[in-house]
Design a protein around this nucleic acid. Sequence first.
DNA 1: TCTGGGGTCCTAGGACCC
DNA 2: TCTGGGGTCCTAGGACCC
Length: 426
Amino acid sequence: MPDPIALIDCNNFYVSCERVFDPKLIGVPVVVLSNNDGCAVARSEEAKVLGIKMAQPLFQFRDKVRDHGIRVMSSNYTLYGDMSRRVVDAVGQFSPSFEVYSIDETFVDLSGFGDRYLKQASDMRSTVRELTGIPTCVGVAPTKTLAKLANYAAKKNPIFGGVCDFTDARVADWCMARIAVGEVWGVGAATEGKLRNIGIETVSQLRDLPMSLARKVGTVVLERIVAELQGVRCLDIEEVVPQRKGMAVTRSAGEPMRTFDAVMQAVTAHATQAAYKLRQHGLVAGQVTVFFHTSPFSKTAPQHSASRTIHLKPMTNNTFDMIHAASLCVQKAWKGDRRGNGYAYAKAGVILDDLIREADTPQLLFEFERPRDARLMTALDAVNDRFGKKKIVVASEGFHRPFEVKAEMRSPRYTTRISEVPVIKA
DNA sequence: TCTGGGGTCCTAGGACCC
DNA sequence: TCTGGGGTCCTAGGACCC
């Protein structure tokens, strides 16, 4: 038997976080919205039963909210991030080797536990529940791709009691014959369509697909998926968090941006936020891309999408440098009359690439030190951290901010803001 | 008339993930 | 009227070099 891998995945994570601090949310339908209160990004089981889909826009299920008393909440990433850390701390007690794959999923290496690995997996699940209040499911299998699938089975089928073991071939075969191919990790809508065209409907069929055919339908990625489904390990548990390669700040605007100035204002705000994020991570960027586009959902409005990339020399995390570079991008990318070119832009963003640690910033031959800028950035961050974001902004960002994030139904930051910690009266 | 070939690097775009 | 945001990886094709 190959060394078992577990995937522990939190159930309806954001909803579960909210329920830990507000028990009135238990047993009723709950939906957590994306940034800007646009779409559903987490749903309780009760909300799923009512037919609310992942990423479904709020305006499409307003009637259900009214008719069924669905509790709708803005997302509270500060809370979820902190709860995630607590879950990982609990998981870490069960194996020295694990990989935090996303905010609500962790792969755990269960080799070295002999035949006690299943006990280990179910103890891990109950301990997370006990220490954090978060319910989870666990999938155990010889490869990551199979562990994801076992986890899916554990979530969908109550007979597994929250832990599904694919190291038992009978269980694995039974499930794989019944799970649709599109549920496999790495098989999205495009690949699913191609697979269905050649008659592949279930996971078992994909597992038994000849490698040459897998390569023809997809790429090396699909070959790797097929191998992993056969129990051949291609993906390792990566304990070290790799240096991130890019970073982005992008937003849909609250109201359409029709003029050059409106787009510039949003991009300035995003560039400011992006530079701040870089400094928080101790990084500098070598490249910045600015994009803005109209709403792809509008059937009638004329569509336009623009983007420009420029290199940052020297590499930087300075707010003023970033705004300057981003402005140049907007100027180059803007088409037509600046007072309005007939397009209603719905979204804009700033994407940073070529990230390296600030300490490793290469020195340019003729670069001169700018210590005052560095001190100014430190002071700017200190003021905004202490008194709240956007207390000091660069003037071009403006005061009327249609691109501002909406979060009208956000819960308190129970665990990270002293002023929002729950008070117990006894 | 016949008009190289092989290598690297970079970028844009697609696909996928949570 | 209102439709998320932030990531990664792979491939194809162009530019460039010798």
